[in-house]
Design a binder for these strands. Sequence first.
DNA 1: CAATTTATTTATAATGATTTTAAACTGAGA
DNA 2: TCTCAGTTTAAAATCATTATAAATAAATTG
Lengths: 162, 162
Amino acid sequence: MENRVERIKKQLHEQSYKLTPQREATVQVLLENEEDHLSAEDVYLLVKEKAPEIGLATVYRTLELLNELEVVDKINFGDGVSRYDLRKEGASHSHHHLVCIECGTVDEIQEDLLAEVEKIVEKDYQFKVKDHRLTFHGVCHRCQAKAKKNKESAEAPSLHTN
Amino acid sequence: MENRVERIKKQLHEQSYKLTPQREATVQVLLENEEDHLSAEDVYLLVKEKAPEIGLATVYRTLELLNELEVVDKINFGDGVSRYDLRKEGASHSHHHLVCIECGTVDEIQEDLLAEVEKIVEKDYQFKVKDHRLTFHGVCHRCQAKAKKNKESAEAPSLHTN
DNA sequence: CAATTTATTTATAATGATTTTAAACTGAGA
DNA sequence: TCTCAGTTTAAAATCATTATAAATAAATTG
């Protein structure tokens, strides 16, 4: 676990960036909230708990930097804010997302799934793929379960209402 | 062609929205620029040619409305602006995009490509898919051709520089 | 160590996209 | 004509993000 931070530190140093306390705190927050898809503001609020004097602009700069170093992915689900998502180590491109239109949760898919599709695109469209973004919008398993339960309790009366 | 406008008109009426001149002009612009991926501002400027008195806010409202009616897709390539893209008629979900990281062009793929992947997602993740967004980032065929040409002309001198 | 340069941060202002608000306008009935 | 709801305009407000200037800290030089 600790290793992860170390690795990122090293990566910063290699590109001759300093690991300032602010940057370190930001990386910490990202690691601790790896599952979530935090907005810059979210990160800012969380970092503030560790380093209350940090400014929002610094968080933005740090996230931007980490994005350039390919430590995080900057993603956008069309709700007006960018979200920042730690990359799995060694992953050459980003994972996929399941956005629930009922409850808003964002789940992740780590599997590749697109290898075939990518081949088709490269061949048929002569497009050299560097990265991809795949997002499904739909209903997550939690909301499906909820809906099913509601339906059942309302289902007793009046069959064949025709 | 004309039919298309008619159909959209009808769709508005069905939901008891009025087809005001402003809305009509906006739809016109979208139809005339179907290939492009216009931002709200782009649409605004084009609509202004037909209906100079229109306001930017109205364009936003209209695009929002058309998005709700599923006439257009609101997409976001992470460059800070939303783009609006007319849906192919009858297409249950949106097409895919190829964003070139060299020149910025956005090409489209109409093929489905994701039928298989969707099945996997529905089964393995119990996620009821309603729509998807697939975007590839990479180098388009035009820029590849350009790069190749440049490379060739710089290739004559000094082989095995080791 | 003192002086200087360089990178980084903070706080604040500025920007740019989008949304809201308030007032005026439009058109369909009563 | 009056009213009512929906719509538009223009302007102001908001929200995310970026730029700027002054302050700070760290690294470098002598």
